[in-house]
Design a protein around this nucleic acid. Structure first.
Lengths: 196, 196
DNA sequence: GACCGACGAACGATCGTTCGTTAGTCTAAG
DNA sequence: CTTAGACTAACGAACGATCGTTCGTCGGTC
């Protein structure tokens, strides 16, 4: 007779993703987290070793998802601009399919201690580098304008992508493909007319 | 004989801007805040009524700064694209000159209670509308392409602007005017070449 | 009967906040 | 010019609540 709601370690991590993303790490108590799974805060320690470790795990999962998506995107053949488009679509897939992990990864890294935070930031820089390299390749093959600064442009593009979770609602009129197309159109062509 | 370090209400608000922006609202204790001013946490209540009220005040100050900058920018004559450029420069001025208030306004509104948060978000929407209207005007006068969706484009542009505080360092090689020029160039022309 | 997830009381620490008190400053009457 | 009294910023102890975490126990499943 199973009267307990038995949970696995993964259940805890997934609940943490949700709550950390929704309320923030410091605003989420272990008892909140327990309630989310129908058990006591103290019971979580059957699965994890500390709240801090849990945050590290959630954030690392987020980083992993983005890195994996980028690796998949980079196998797309074609011009630099086309590789960049694949990176954008991959990024959006992660943000929209793993909201919790993505948001926690993007917004809660500051709650980590110095060493862990540095590690995460370095990893984030590595991810950004893949965007920069696609742009540089694009400049080489003529699909991206030669006067573009790849470093700045990749920061701008990632700013747009990382802010998507702040306003986009999947149930709205814009589907995922349209969103990707709109972002790419903005990034590639801008909004200005030839005569300003 | 003045042995006390006497502080005014404004001192408390300014210290709160700094700490709330740096560590986040929930990670900042009243005793932290007191230490920043050289006094006890309890002493802060000579100046304020609650931690929550203090956050409201900091965030409202941030909103005020952005609204004032936008109002100034909108007096700039010229095409829609030129008005948009003035809005961008005004936004950057606020972000770079009032880092604490701006960051707290942009990142800590989720710590407000439902009613206050709704109020702040509405005000933020009003600010975004000014960008949208400049774009719409630009479409009218031919300075902005007619196929641009002003709503999406203003979200994208503001995503870039609001992320500036996450990476930009004023002591770096890029000064404020160059930063504004780079952002405008990206937003108006994008990075794609004519043939992709 | 070994194993494990959950319980629930309890820990010391820290949280936001209250309050009676003190020390310094300002104003105005003597 | 002095001085009494109002005013205010800051102190510091203390409040109940909640925090993350520990631990001995127990029920349910292999």
């Amino acid at each position: 007779m199973t009267t307990y709601a038995r949970n696995s370690r993964l259940d805890v991590v997934l609940a943490a993703e949700r709550l950390f993303a929704q309320r923030g790490f410091h605003a989420t108590s272990m008892r909140d987290l327990g309630r989310e799974l129908g058990l006591h805060g103290s019971s979580l320690y059957s699965h994890i070793t500390s709240k801090e470790d849990l945050l590290v795990e959630v954030i690392d999962r987020g980083a992993e998802l983005f890195d994996a998506a980028a690796a998949r995107a980079e196998q797309a053949a074609g011009s630099g601009a086309e590789r960049l488009a694949a990176l954008v679509r991959g990024h959006l897939d992660v943000v929209l399919e793993h909201v919790g992990a993505a948001r926690t990864y993007l917004n809660e890294a500051h709650a980590l201690d110095d060493q862990q935070r540095r590690r995460v930031i370095e990893r984030r820089d590595g991810y950004e580098r893949r965007f920069r390299e696609a742009m540089t390749a694009g400049i080489g093959d003529g699909s991206i304008r030669a006067d573009v600064d790849p470093r700045l442009a990749s920061i701008f593009l990632l700013s747009i992508l990382n802010s998507v979770e702040r306003w986009y609602r999947p149930e709205g009129p814009l589907d995922r493909n349209q969103l990707a197309a709109e972002i790419l159109e903005f990034a590639l062509s801008g909004i200005g007319s030839r005569v300003r």
